[in-house]
Computed example of a mutant assay.
Amino acid sequence: MKASILKALGTSVVLSLGATSAAWSTECIAPANPGGGWDFTCRQIGKILYDLKLVDEPVQVTNMAGAGGGVAFAHVVNERNTDNDLIVAASSATTTRLAQNAFGGATADQVRFVGAIGADPGVIVVAADSPFQSLNDMVEAIKADPGSVAFAGGSAAGGFDHMKPLQILKAAGFDDIKAIKYIGVDGGADAITQTVGGFTQAMTGDMSEIVGFIQSGEVRALAVLTEERVPGFEDIPTAREQGYDVVAVNWRGLYVPKGISDDDFNMWAERLQAVADSDEWKEAMVANGLAPFTKVGGDFQSWIDQVVADTVTLSKEIGVIQ
């Protein structure tokens, strides 16, 4: 099977085998080159699965870059649909791209999302001298004059950063979301610079992007988009506790082939829950700036279904998809 992958995809696949003499029973596909978030997910979860003896042999990590995850997704759907020893790293970017038809007609229901066990929390941030003291202040200002507040974010228009303020305004009962100004820049640091410099009134991004700026006092976070306040940042209120039922986190998790049995799906959910509960994973989250966010099995799949549906609706409203 590995030879056929290489033949089909050529140099776009890098096999990271570790000890070449080992036998493999489980494979984790990271849909990107080594070093990124999906690669981290496969390597860290794979290591803990083996350390906890949840799998019999070390987990093979296969880096399968291309089309923002689309190459790996197509490979799983078309060639590995019943492989119960296959797991694939995923994140919020995966579901956003699927919802926006970025994988050439592929849809989220062609695989099964087995769980997420950590997340980079979404945040809404303003400059330290901003007149907005709360998320409510900002929402009311936008309702009164939608053009008065521009958001900077590290994703393109229609991407995950853009969706965060749109979700908040929708939760506030504001429907003219095309009127909300968003400027996509090259990463979170640039988005912070735009906001601190006064070129935009707010930044939409992830917690990991703003930690240093919060510590230096250059910005103030109006809300974190998690279910509960983030450990270590307990002074930042959630959007929920301010009256906006929005959870938007860049979760780290896995999907599996759709054609595996319910028993195998539940087995992977139980394994992932065991990883989430381990001290080793908790240490990895702290070391890599992730917040607790655990949803596995049917609960996670139902949550994903709703996230995809909401993303489709918003994407149509702003014209990203028809």
Rank of each mutant, 00 (worst) to 15 (best):
G158W: 15
A152T: 07
G212Q: 12
A157K: 15
K164G: 03
L166Q: 13
F160C: 04
F199K: 15
G217Q: 11
G158V: 10
K181G: 08
Q201H: 00
A189E: 13
I180Q: 06
V196P: 08
I192N: 04
A179E: 09
D186N: 13
G212A: 14
L166D: 13
I168L: 07
A152L: 08
D186L: 09
F174M: 03
S216L: 11
T200N: 00
S155L: 07
G147D: 05
F160L: 10
K178Q: 14
S216D: 08
D186M: 08
M207L: 14
I177D: 12
V196C: 10
G154D: 05
F213P: 04
Q194F: 10
D176R: 14
P165M: 12
D176A: 15
F151K: 02
I214Q: 13
M207N: 02
G173C: 11
V185K: 13
D206C: 06
E218L: 13
D175F: 03
Y182F: 15
M203A: 09
G205T: 00
V185S: 09
A202V: 01
Q215E: 11
S216N: 12
G187I: 06
T195W: 02
T193M: 13
K181N: 11
V185E: 06
F213A: 15
A191W: 03
V196F: 02
P165T: 10
A152R: 07
L169S: 07
A152I: 06
A157D: 14
P146G: 11
I168V: 12
A150Y: 12
G153I: 09
I214W: 01
F213T: 07
D206K: 09
F213K: 11
T193E: 10
A179Q: 11
T204E: 02
G184L: 08
M163N: 14
T204R: 00
A156C: 08
T204N: 03
A189P: 04
A144N: 03
Y182P: 11
G154E: 05
G184V: 06
V185H: 09
F174N: 00
D206S: 10
A172I: 05
D176M: 10
T193Y: 03
T204F: 00
A144D: 04
E209Q: 05
E209L: 00
G217M: 11
M203T: 07
A202Q: 01
L169W: 06
K143N: 06
A157G: 14
I214K: 14
A172C: 05
D190C: 05
I177R: 14
K143R: 10
M203I: 05
Q201K: 01
G184E: 06
Q201V: 01
G147K: 02
T193C: 07
D176K: 15
K170A: 13
S148Y: 02
T200S: 02
A202I: 00
G154H: 08
D206G: 10
F213S: 14
T193N: 14
G217S: 12
T200L: 02
